[in-house]
Design a protein around this nucleic acid. Structure first.
Length: 530
RNA sequence: GCGGGUGUAGCAUAGUGGUAAUGCUUCGGCCUUCCAAGCCGAUGAUGUGGGUUCGAUUCCCAUCACCCGCUCCA
C-alpha cells in the first residue's frame, strides 16, 4: 500500500513561507516570472548545499570505491545520439482538438496509409489525416516536442554548430569512462558520482519546484562485473535468494540483482538519515512495460508529497547498455581488463570453455539476443575483458529539497502558563541539513558587557557552523523567527553568562531550555549535526 | 497542449470609474532578565502591455505567471 502524508499541508501555505523566509523565489519575478524555473534564496541555497554535501560525503568521500566527476553541461551532440535522447526527444506530435488526445504524427500517418509532409525541419499533416481515437480531422499542425534545450556553439547559428544542454548528468560519466579508469586507480566494481544541473524542456512544469525545466541531479554510475564474469571468478553468483547481508561489506560473488538491491537499501538509509520518515517513503518496483527496454530492473524511491506520491530517485540496473552504445557510436573500446577474470579463465581447459560458451549462448538467446553476440561476448570474456554493467541511482536534488521542506513544515498550537494560546510555525529540519544551525542572542541589547560577551560567543561559534545573530525585538520573537527558518537551536547569553560562562540552549522542537557551557554546546552540536 | 480559476505591499485581507485601507512582517528608536509583549516612527502594492474614458487598480482585449483538473513525463 502506498504511503500517504502523515500530515496534510497546503502547498500554497508552504510556498508562502518559502518566499517569506527566503527559501524559494520564482525565477525572474521582477519581470513577471518564467514558467518552470525557480531560484533558491539565502536559506534555500544553504539547505540545498547541505543536501548535496551530505550526498557527496556519503556516496563519494566515505567510500573507497566511488570517485567524482564534474563534466561540462554542453557536450558533443553525438553523445545524445548515442544515448538515444536526440531521437527520442524529437518526435513531431499532433493534438486532436475534439477529444484532446495526443499522437505521434509519423505513427498516425503510417497507420492511415498516409505520408507525413516534411518542409525542411517543419512538418505538416496530409489533409485526410484523422484522429485515431475519435475520427475527427480537427487536428493541430505537427509540432516537435524535443525536450532538450538547443543552443549553438560559437556565434553562427546553423545546424553544424547545434548543441544541447544536457538532459541528464549520467552520460558524461560513460563518455569519460576510459579517462576515469586510467587515472582513478579503481577496479570494477567501482562507481563514478556526479552532481549538477540538467535541463529538460518539460511540456508542463507543475507542482511548485517538483517538475522544473532547470534542475539538479545527483547521480552515481556504479560499474559491476557481468554475472558471467562473477560466475567464472567465484564459481557462483549470489542472488537475493541467498539472503546476502546488504548492510555489510559488498561481496565478490554478488550478481547484478544483489548489487541493485544493495544500492536501494543504501539510498533508503540515506534518506532516513537526513530526516525523511520511513513511513513517507515508498519503493515502486517497475514492471514489464514500465521498464525501458535495456533495463533489467528499476526501483523508484517515492515520497508522499502533499500533491501525491512522487519519485525522488530512480535506481536502475541498466546492464551494459550505455557503455555499449557509446562503444558503437564512438568506435572506441569501453571494456575493461579484469585480472581476476583472466586468472580464472586461464585455469579452464577447452572443454570447460565450450561448456561455458554454450551456457552463455543459451541464456542470451533466451533474453532475445543473437547467438553471435553471445559468442563474441564469451570470446572477450576468455581474454579477461568485458564491458561493465551498471547500477544507476539517480536522484533529483530539487525534488529532495522540496520533500525536505514539506516534511519539515509543521504548525502547532501552544498554550502558555496563563492559558493563552498561540500558533507556532516551525520547520523541523534534521540538524544536518538545516540552513542555520544556531541562533545566538543577547538577552537584552542595551547592557554593553552582556552584549559584548554575546558577540564574543557568536564569533567563536560562527567559525564552526552557519549561525545567526539576532538582537532585535523580544526574545520570544527571536525564537519564533528561528523556528520558521528551521534552526535547530538557539543560545541566549544572559547575566549569568558573565559570571560562569554558561548560557541557555533552547531546542527548536521541544522549546525546552538547558544551561550549558560553550564546550558542552560544541560537543552536543557536533554529535547531532553529524 | 486543453478546460476552469486567481493576480492589490514580504505575507494575509479590504476597497473604489476620481488622494488605494487594515493587520502581521521587515527596518529604526525607546523599553525589555527567556517564547511572536508595549510605545513611537519608517519603508513598501493594484503582474505586464494595449484599448475605452477627461480620468482605469476597477470595464474590455491581449499577454505573462501561479493554482486545480486533464494530458505529458524518453
Amino acid at each position: 500500500m502506498p504511503p500517504h502524508m502523515s500530515k496534510t499541508i497546503d502547498m500554497e501555505v508552504l510556498a508562502s513561507l518559502c518566499k517569506r523566509r527566503g527559501f524559494i523565489f520564482q525565477s525572474s519575478e521582477l519581470y513577471g516570472g518564467i514558467n518552470g524555473f525557480w531560484d533558491y534564496g539565502p536559506l534555500g541555497c544553504e539547505l540545498k548545499r547541505n543536501v548535496k554535501d551530505a550526498w557527496w560525503k556519503t556516496m563519494v568521500r566515505a567510500r573507497e570505491d566511488v570517485v567524482g566527476l564534474e563534466a561540462s553541461i554542453i557536450m558533443h551532440p553525438a553523445i545524445w545520439k548515442a544515448s538515444g535522447h536526440a531521437d527520442g526527444f524529437a518526435d513531431p506530435m499532433v493534438d486532436c482538438k475534439e477529444c484532446r488526445k495526443r499522437f505521434r504524427a509519423d505513427q498516425l500517418c503510417e497507420e492511415q496509409g498516409l505520408a507525413l509532409i516534411k518542409n525542411g525541419s517543419a512538418f505538416a499533416l496530409p489533409a485526410d489525416a484523422a484522429c485515431p481515437a475519435c475520427g475527427s480531422k480537427n487536428l493541430t499542425e505537427p509540432r516537435s516536442f524535443n525536450l532538450m534545450f538547443k543552443t549553438f556553439v560559437g556565434p553562427v547559428e546553423d545546424e553544424s554548430n547545434l548543441a544541447w544542454l544536457r538532459p541528464e548528468t549520467a552520460q558524461a560519466i560513460f563518455a569519460q569512462f576510459n579517462n576515469i579508469l586510467a587515472t582513478a586507480r579503481q577496479k570494477v566494481p567501482f562507481g563514478v558520482a556526479q552532481m549538477g544541473k540538467s535541463f529538460r524542456n518539460e511540456i508542463n512544469p507543475r507542482n511548485y519546484t517538483f517538475r522544473s525545466r532547470e534542475f539538479e541531479q545527483m547521480e552515481l554510475e556504479y560499474f559491476i562485473r557481468p554475472d558471467e564474469a562473477v560466475k567464472l571468478i567465484c564459481g557462483r553468483v549470489a542472488t537475493l535468494a541467498d539472503n546476502p547481508d546488504l548492510a555489510g561489506e559488498p561481496q565478490a560473488d554478488w550478481g547484478w540483482e544483489v548489487w541493485h538491491r544493495y544500492w536501494v537499501e543504501q539510498r533508503l538509509a540515506w534518506y532516513r538519515a537526513i530526516g525523511l520518515p520511513a513511513a513517507d517513503l515508498n519503493q515502486h518496483w517497475q514492471t514489464g512495460d514500465e521498464l525501458a527496454h535495456y533495463a533489467r530492473a528499476c526501483v523508484d524511491i517515492e515520497y508522499a508529497f502533499p500533491f501525491g506520491v512522487q519519485e525522488l530517485e530512480g535506481i536502475a540496473a541498466r546492464s551494459d547498455f550505455d557503455l555499449s552504445q557509446h562503444q558503437k557510436h564512438s568506435g572506441k573500446q569501453l571494456d575493461v581488463f579484469d585480472e581476476a577474470l583472466k586468472q580464472a579463465v586461464d585455469r579452464l581447459d577447452a572443454d570447460a570453455k565450450d561448456h561455458c560458451t554454450q551456457r552463455i549462448v543459451a541464456a542470451w538467446t533466451g533474453r532475445g539476443k543473437s547467438g553471435e553476440e553471445a559468442r563474441a561476448f564469451a570470446v572477450k570474456l576468455y581474454e579477461g575483458k568485458y564491458v561493465p554493467h551498471v547500477i544507476e541511482p539517480s536522484a533529483g536534488t530539487d525534488r529532495l529539497a522540496l520533500a525536505l521542506l514539506c516534511n519539515a513544515y509543521d504548525e502547532e498550537t501552544i498554550t502558555d502558563e496563563k492559558g493563552k494560546t498561540d500558533q507556532r510555525t516551525v520547520m523541523r529540519f534534521h540538524p544536518a541539513i538545516a540552513p542555520i544551525k544556531l541562533g545566538v542572542f543577547p538577552l537584552v541589547k542595551n547592557k554593553p558587557p552582556l552584549y559584548a560577551k554575546a558577540r564574543e560567543i557568536f564569533a567563536k561559534l560562527q567559525r564552526r557552523w552557519p549561525c545567526f545573530w539576532d538582537e532585535s525585538g523580544a526574545i520570544g520573537r527571536r525564537y519564533r523567527r528561528m523556528d520558521e527558518a528551521g534552526t535547530p537551536w538557539c543560545v541566549t547569553v544572559d547575566f549569568q553568562t558573565l559570571d560562569d560562562g554558561t548560557m541557555t540552549l533552547r531546542d527548536r522542537d521541544s522549546m525546552k531550555q538547558v544551561r550549558l557551557g560553550i564546550s558542552e554546546l560544541i560537543e552536543k552540536m557536533d554529535a547531532e549535526i553529524g
